[in-house]
Design a protein around this nucleic acid. Structure first.
Ligand code: MN
Ligand code: MN
Ligand code: ZN
Ligand code: ZN
Lengths: 138, 138
DNA sequence: TAAACATTGCAATACAGTTGCATGCCGTTT
DNA sequence: AAACGGCATGCAACTGTATTGCAATGTTTA
C-alpha cells in the first residue's frame, strides 16, 4: 500500500516523507477534489502550513492540479494525465455541484476547441460546469 | 451623458443615486472587467463597502455580471446581453491576460455545448481562456 | 562528527470579502 | 413643522483563505 505512493512520489522527484505519503494516500482515495481547509479538517494531525506547502510541491512537480471551483475556492486533485513539473496537461472539464459543494474532475470530458478573436493567444483553458452531480441528483 | 446612465439604472429598477451613476459611468467606459480593489483605487472618493454593495446591487438586478478570473480574483463587467434580475444570460467566454492581468469579456465567443457524463445536471458554465490579449501581444 | 540542506510547526501577516451599526438623507404621514 | 420610515453611506470590525518568516527538528553529505 505505502509502497505504491512512495514510488509515485519518487517518480515525480518528490522526497517521500511520511507526511507526504499520507497526504498522497488520502488524495488517491478521494473521489473528488479538496480544498486546503477541508484537507486540514480531514488530516487533523497536520499543520495547515505543512499541508499548504505539500500541495504546492505536489502541484509544482505535476502530481496534483489546482482547480478554481468557480465559487472562489481553490481545490486540488490528483493529475489524471501525463503532467510534468511546470507543465500540466489536464484540459478536462470540472463540475461543481451546488448541492454537495464538491468539485469533480471529468477526465473523459475534454474542453472543446474555441476560436478566439484575432490576436488573442491562448495558453490555458478552464471550463467549469455547475449544477447537480450524479450522486446528488438521485 | 448622465442622462443615459440614469435611464439605465431606472430600467433595472435601481435607485439612481449620484454614487451609483458615477460607478455605472465608470464601468461603461471600461474596456475590460474590474475587481473591487481596482475599482476602489480608481474611484478613490468612494468607500470600499459602498462600492461592494453597489456592485452587489448591480449584479442582483442584472446590470453587471461577476467573473471568476481563474486566478482567484472576482471581477465585474457590464452585462452585454438581456440579463435580468436574478437571471444572467452571459454565456460568453472570458479571457485572462497573463501580461496585463486584465480579464476581457468575449461576447461574440459563446461557450460550446458540452456533453456531460450520465446524471450530471448542468445549470451554469464558465469558460476562462488564459494567455496573452490582443493589446499585449503586439 | 560537523556542516549543509530539507522539512515541519507556530506565529504573524496579507488581503479579499462580508457584516453590524450609527449617521445622514429624502420623501411621506401626522 | 415635526415625526416617522426606508434607503444609502461610511467606518470599524470580523471572517476566511493564502502566504511568509523564523526557529526547531530531522536528514543527508563531506
Ligand atoms: Mn481535474
Ligand atoms: Mn463577461
Ligand atoms: Zn453533489
Ligand atoms: Zn493583456
Amino acid at each position: 500500500m505505502k509502497q505504491e505512493v512512495e514510488i509515485m512520489l519518487k517518480s515525480k522527484e518528490i522526497n517521500p516523507t511520511v507526511n507526504r505519503m499520507l497526504v498522497l494516500d488520502y488524495l488517491l482515495e478521494l473521489k473528488s477534489s479538496i480544498s486546503l481547509t477541508d484537507l486540514e479538517l480531514s488530516l487533523e494531525s497536520f499543520d495547515r502550513v505543512t499541508l499548504y506547502r505539500t500541495l504546492k510541491t505536489f502541484e509544482e512537480r505535476g502530481l496534483v492540479h489546482k482547480i478554481e471551483d468557480g465559487m472562489g475556492i481553490t481545490k486540488f486533485a490528483i493529475c489524471q494525465d501525463s503532467c510534468e513539473a511546470g507543465m500540466h496537461h489536464d484540459l478536462h472539464v470540472h463540475f461543481y455541484c451546488h448541492s454537495c459543494k464538491q468539485t469533480f474532475c471529468l477526465p473523459k470530458t475534454q474542453i472543446p476547441e474555441v476560436k478566439l478573436p484575432e490576436n488573442y493567444q491562448r495558453q490555458e483553458m478552464e471550463l467549469i460546469v455547475k449544477g447537480i452531480c450524479s450522486v446528488c441528483v438521485k
